[in-house]
Nucleic acid binder design. Sequence first.
DNA 1: ATGGTAGGACACCTA
Length: 281
Amino acid sequence: MLCIASWNVNSVRKRMHQVERLVDDTGADIICLQETKCSEAAFPAAALAELGYPHQAYAGQSGYNGVAILSKLPLTAIQRHHHCGRDDARHISARVAFGGDTVTIHSLYVPAGGQIPDMELNPKFAHKLKFVDAVGDYFAASHGLRDLAVVAGDFNIAPLPADVWDHRKMSRIVTHTPIEVEALERMKRSLYFIDALREVVAADDPVFTWWSYRAADWQAANKGRRLDHIWVTPALKAHIAAVEILSDVRHWQPPSDHVPVVLKLRARTALETPAGTHHHF
DNA sequence: ATGGTAGGACACCTA
């Protein structure tokens, strides 16, 4: 079994105790982080290695953004990706061994997009939509349709009506507007990705991964959104063993406003060969 | 229609 957790920590340095608790609770083989909010020099690499993750890929900038992949298993082909001509630390990938093959893990942090859902009035919103299209183009160009790949992260878009607390109200709010949902759908079609959580939770069952800091009582109000996702390529669909949103983590003090999503992939057996590979005896 | 909170770096931006 390969266990992959993804979490927008909102500052990795502020959240080290909670990362340790996540490790204790899940024993994840791989942890994808977003919004680490520190430069590479300030990244707590030694402390995370001490927690059992000596293999690390991370990109950061002081104060904003920042993504990482922490692994118990060796990482190869570490790549930092830039989109839309910016050097924001929003996308990093690495490969890890998986049942005689390798799976590419992507940790992705999509721009939030500001407050106003209008491309003309709000450059942040325009950038968000361009970024999502650029990531889709990148996936289509860099992977084959039979590749094993996992894309985990804060996509900052809640695509389904049941991914927000009120579909009608939220349709005019950035993260759930039709134009963002369409952009995310295009990104998803780039490699015919599978939304892992919705493989195990019905499409009309409300589930959230984010609750605003600004609510007096986030749990009582429960005005959440599902902004964090783990997608897998079709070749991995049959290997999904479990997918879980760790909602309790929102109580861990001091909390991130996001909670982790965890995917367990059943190991490929020796009998399985990559689809399309023909053996001649 | 507005303001509510958090994190980081440096007076104000990001989410």
